[in-house]
Every structure is written in C-alpha cells, then in structure tokens.
Simulated scan of single mutants.
Amino acid sequence: MGMIRTFAATLAVATALGGMATAASAQEITLRSSDTHPDGYPTVEAVKFMGEVLKEKTGGRIAVQVFASHQLGEEKETIEQTKFGVIDLNRVNFAPMNGIVKATTVACLPYIFTSKENMRAVMDGPIGEDILKAFEPAGYVGLAVYDSGARSFYNSKKPITSIDDLKGMKFRVIQSDLFVDMVNALGANATPMAYGEVYSGLQTGLIDGAENNWPSYESSKHYEVAKFYSLDQHSQCPEVLMMSKISWDKLTPEDQTAVREAAKESVGKMRELWDAQEAKSRKVVEDAGAEINEIDPAAFIAAMDPIYAKYADTPELQDLVKRIRDTQK
C-alpha cells in the first residue's frame, strides 16, 4: 500500500511538472530544480547562476527553473522525486543522503573539518570528486559541492556554554541517523523534523532548540523564537547539487558536459554569496538581540568517538576519514 501511495504521489507531481520539460522543439529543455531555502539564499542564487551559464553554453537551448522555498517538498520528499526523474536538479544537504550514498556520511561526521578553508580544499580535490562519483550508482549524478556553513546549536531556553548545558534539552535535527546519534551523544534529545516545521516547533515548545548555520538561523527567522546561539560549530556537512540519472541520460554527451561545467562554475558564485551572507546574517540576528555564546569544543569533540566508530565502520570509510584529516589548508 505504501509503494502504491508513493508511486501515485510521484505520478501526480510528474503530471504537474512534466518531468524534464521540452519547450518549442525537442532540442529546447527546461530543467526543474528544487531547493528548500527561499529566493535570495546563496544556494538558490547559485543554481540560478548555473542556469545562466548553461543557457550561454548551449545557445539558449537548456534553461534551469528553480523552485525555492520547498515548493516541491521538503528534502526527503524531493530526493525520491529526483531519483524518479520528476525533479531534474536538486540542492540538498549531504545528511539526508547518508543512507543512500555512504561516502557522504564521512563529510558529515562532527568536527571532521578544521575550518571552512579545510572543507573547501577537501571538496575541491580528489576526495570531493570521489564522493560525487558515488552518487551515480544510487540513481543520481553529483554535479557540485556547495557550502552549508558551520552548524551550531541555538535554543529558546538558556545560554549553552558547555556540554553539560545540553543535557535533557530537545533539539531538532535533520532527518538523519548520524545527526540523531550525535545530539544524543552530547546528552541532549534529538528530534528529527522537517526544516519547514522548526519555527512553529520552537514557538510552541515542541522543541527547545535546533542546530544550523548563520544564514539558515537568520533567513528562517528562528532567532525570533530561539535567541541563544552557541558557537560549538559541530558540523560543516556540505550541500550537493545533484541531477536525476534519468534526466541526465536524456541529454547528449555534449549537453552533459555543459551541465557539469556550468554546475562547477556555480560553486565560486555560491561561495562569494555565502561568505557575504554569513556576515550579514550574523549582524541581523545580533542587532535583533540574539545572544551569541562562545564554546570550547574540546568536550564536544571527545564525546564524538562513538559516532566515528559507528559511522566510519568500513575500511573504505575509515580511509576516507584519514584522507580528509591528512588534507591541510
């Protein structure tokens, strides 16, 4: 019954969107792209920029239409739709892909990266390319890696300045087993929840807090209902821009090359927008009265040993951890 409902829902979306739509002729293509974030957010604008580059590369034959603000669904739903070819392009965090593409798990491990620069160096090199290649057997084509910033805890109850302050608090996390286990390992209670439900959850007291980066904390207005932001920076789990393998296989080799090149070119634009947005978002929330707390992460890092043991549980994943740690910037 569940499979019938899933198929029916997918079919309904396919009918509404038309899959990879063709325009006036069979050569004109519009790729539908999904993002949970609002217009103006760096990832949304980066995919729009990719569309502009792609249009230029193909003489206007291929365009990208971005559906922002989770118009096509939350990340978990759009991941499935992308596999079926209902959505052509999708910007999602690595975390909900952990159970689908195992290599993404390592990049989401707490404190795996030492800095933003370290994360970018890793993702721009052979390690990042290897992770993107791992998407294809799962029905997706990994095109580019975007920033997701450093994620930190915020809440509506009290300042968090040490690991002990987390005990017993309820925090929303991405719908990811790794994030659930990470928060629980810190003594808090993890509550997986769709991004679009977090504001009301904080407002009603269903959850005490959540964890995210500066731009998400600000653009979602979560600072209005959770004013205590603690800079533990536990995760720099990246984002991926991926394409449905079904949609990809409909393209000519030349158009596939153009799509891949345009996606890679969008990374620089995304980072430029991201760095500016981080600074702007921090100022907005501070001006609005959010209380920012610095944290010594040593105790947080020490609590993560069981997470590494559980999630880097194969020789391949352990090797990936080592390769990342050996990458210096």
Rank of each mutant, 00 (worst) to 15 (best):
I4M: 12
I4R: 14
R5H: 09
T6C: 15
A9S: 13
V13P: 03
L17V: 10
G18N: 11
A21R: 15
A23L: 13
R32F: 07
R32N: 14
Y41Q: 05
P42F: 08
A46Y: 03
V47S: 06
M50H: 04
G59D: 03
A63C: 07
Q71N: 10
L72Y: 05
K76C: 09
E77H: 15
E77C: 10
T82Q: 10
N90V: 08
N90E: 14
A95M: 07
P96V: 03
M97S: 04
N98W: 08
G99Y: 01
V101E: 01
A107Y: 02
C108W: 07
L109R: 01
E117Q: 02
N118F: 00
M119Y: 02
R120C: 00
V122L: 00
V122R: 00
D124C: 01
G125A: 02
I127T: 02
L132M: 07
L132T: 02
L132Y: 03
K133Q: 12
A138T: 11
G139M: 09
G142H: 09
Y146P: 02
R151A: 13
R151C: 14
S152T: 10
F153M: 11
K158L: 13
L166I: 09
L166N: 06
G168T: 08
M169W: 03
F171C: 04
I174W: 13
Q175G: 07
V180Q: 15
N184T: 13
L186G: 01
P192W: 06
P192H: 07
Y195A: 13
S200C: 04
I207G: 02
D208P: 05
S219H: 15
Y223T: 06
E224Q: 14
V225P: 02
A226V: 06
F228C: 07
L231N: 09
C237F: 05
K245C: 02
D249A: 12
E254S: 14
E261F: 08
E265G: 04
K269G: 06
A276K: 12
Q277W: 07
D287W: 04
A288I: 09
G289Q: 04
A290V: 09
D296Y: 06
D296C: 05
A303K: 14
A303W: 03
D305Y: 04
P315I: 04
P315S: 10
L317A: 08
V321E: 00
D326K: 00
Q328P: 00
Q328R: 00
K329W: 00
K329T: 00
